[in-house]
Amino acid sequence: MYIKTMLINVLQGFVSLCFSRYIEVYLRCFNMSIKTLDLSMVTLKISEMLHPADRELMANVRLDKLIRTVKVDSGLLISEDLNLKNCITVLASGLIAVQHKFESKICVSHFYHHGDIIYDTEIRKDLNKMQTQWYFYEPSILYVLQLTGITEAIGDKTLFSKLKVQSALHSSYQYQKYINDFALNRKSFCVNWIRRYGKALSLVSRNDLALFFGISISSLKSYIKIATKHA
């Protein structure tokens, strides 16, 4: 009798564990329809990403039917939870840190902010050589455009091909911009960043921020002072 009760308890525990995992995944990534106000922002972002000669291809495409809204809870993203392959994703709200292991430290190379286009190339298992992870500092909303859906919707592969090419080129170009911004004048980069993304100060620890800027905590404190003084 005792063994039977114990077995039932173990089974119940197992079922509840599986169920809670299912609920967690479900809560971390559930779909909603895109807010009308945000549709123009996303359309503009995607259109701006295209080469000017190809932008007219977007004229007859209704993106609201093709974009899925994904809500992601705060915490570390498990890449398998969110399949963004062949997608263009816009961060509608939230703050994401792009973390890597470098010389046995976890370092943030950059952050994604509201309105940024993000690509899963850096976290996709088959391409992720630097153990890159996305850390969501707060519950976030992503607008995801599935490129294969476009072909089905408009019955033409041209826009799909152009977006796929452009997004691949854009993903690496974005990094060059992070490098240029950072390299030229570290102090001014730090001060401007803090001014522009002041909200991040309440979400990211001072230690992580100092690591992100590649400066000491005391330099960070003085840059924060400068940035907030004229805010």
Binding site: E103, C107, S109, M130, T132, S171, Y178, G214
Partner: peptide, 23 residues
């Protein structure tokens, strides 16, 4: 192949960014 090529560039640039900051 382009996705793969650009993933490589992203990797190289990421590495440069991290070296600039931490090495």
């Amino acid at each position: 192949n382009l996705a793969q090529i650009n993933a490589y560039f992203v990797h190289m640039r990421k590495l440069r960014l991290l070296k600039m900051k931490h090495m």
